[in-house]
Design a binder for these strands. Structure first.
Lengths: 234, 234
DNA sequence: TCATCCTAACTTGTCGCCAAGTGCTGTAGT
DNA sequence: ACTACAGCACTTGGCGACAAGTTAGGATGA
């Protein structure tokens, strides 16, 4: 991006974020911005496409470009042993968790490379999509050591909250020995599952979860959050 | 990005990340990829520019495109009261902290909107750039309640580690009442200070820091990390 | 045989032209 | 007076053509 493009980007992003451009109006057309900034049309197009990839606007050929609805971010508390589902229900009335996968993990899956997961373990993947206001906002994969939960494959409708599931199995005290966070852009599968654009950064948190009383590993967890839908309390 | 562009992007990014393209060689030219993927040159260019903005490659007109040196990420522990500088020195021999700002904060600064910072407080901003391998990797802003440190404005050379500074003032036990994390792209100032490209996501952590024994607020802290240089332990 | 210069073929950089889509206004017909 | 259609002016979408930079190889001259 050259200086001209950056100038246009800052103007448009500031206008989007501070409300100068409103939801119902069209964004200024490419030719309007060409006149305003005295730059070739291709530079305006480049900037607009960049902002589209960030997920702020969409375009309709022949009609114009429009703001997408901005959502207020919800707060995720990264520590403590309160269920994610409970945290979300406190902040919004429109939360849903949907199990998208419940399957035994094959023996050659990379999860078996994790410390403390031995080949004798039976591991099930439970994958859930978390919806806020009807839109996917987070993806939650739990790799569960299923040895102590032989009925897990029939438990599909009781897995939308893993904490609830564990509690119904008599496990009430949890702890974690590590929790790592990284940031990346969505790959093709993540864009599809989370319905997000190329340039929405994702926060990925990888951790384990133990039965504190029995000192027994329950699961490895990988959670992928859209950073435009959540902020995080450490 | 249409399907053709995404196909090219995946091919190039995978090649970059798994080492197919090596540091000393040129990336395939635009025309080579045009032949290989059977797409218009503009689509190849769009993808290459995207990857440049992510910080992986750079170009030289008339010569070609090349990989930038990839760095191994360092681990930042987000909890506990160990100095960031100590954490870094454990992981790399080439760490440096440079004070880039030491100034009293004017009374109309937004920091005075924070809870527990009253207009009577004297607040100093200490801004430090953290260098890894000679490159800026994190920006650290501490808004210090300077009432108990009247000599702070003369302490420039003792502020590269705030923990060291507090310890030299007899404060040895710390705690924090909140810590919030968000992710965004760098603005113009951040790109300049951190020497990073448009599409390097930044992790921003905002927190406070208290003298545990005196139960007294020491500072508000804002830390901005390049996510291509760090990963995070919660 | 070596050095220098020039040209051609390669590379990336810039942006304009044409295509496709849509909506609005004016005119004509009923 | 109302409705329908056509044309024009607006919008975004696609991509090719030309500019600028560099390098390598070949030819010429010393």
């Amino acid at each position: 991006m050259d200086q001209e493009e950056l100038r246009v980007k800052d103007y448009l992003l500031q206008g989007i974020l501070n409300g100068t451009f409103s939801l119902d109006d069209k964004m200024p057309s490419e030719l309007v911005l060409v006149e305003q900034f005295k730059v070739p049309r291709i530079k305006i197009r480049n900037v607009y496409e960049f902002i589209e990839k960030m997920g702020y606007i969409y375009s309709k050929q022949g009609v114009g470009r429009f703001l997408k609805h901005q959502r207020k971010t919800l707060e995720v508390v990264m520590t403590g042993d309160v269920s994610f589902s409970e945290k979300m229900r406190k902040q919004t009335a429109n939360y849903k968790s949907v199990v998208t996968k419940l399957e035994r993990v094959p023996a050659n899956h990379e999860i078996y490379n994790k410390p403390q997961i031995v080949p004798e373990h039976t591991v099930y993947l439970v994958e859930r999509l978390r919806y806020i206001d009807g839109e996917p906002a987070a993806l939650h994969r739990s790799y569960i050591i299923a040895d102590n939960f032989p009925q897990i494959k029939q438990a599909n409708n009781r897995l939308t909250s893993m904490y609830s599931f564990y509690k119904s199995n008599g496990i009430n005290m949890f702890h974690s020995t590590f929790s790592n966070l990284s940031v990346s852009f969505p790959n093709e599968l993540e864009r599809a599952l989370l319905s997000c654009e190329v340039l929405v950064p994702l926060v990925k948190v990888e951790s384990d979860n133990w039965d504190k009383e029995q000192n027994q590993l329950l699961e490895y967890t990988e959670i992928i959050y859209r950073t435009d839908r959540f902020s995080f309390q450490l």
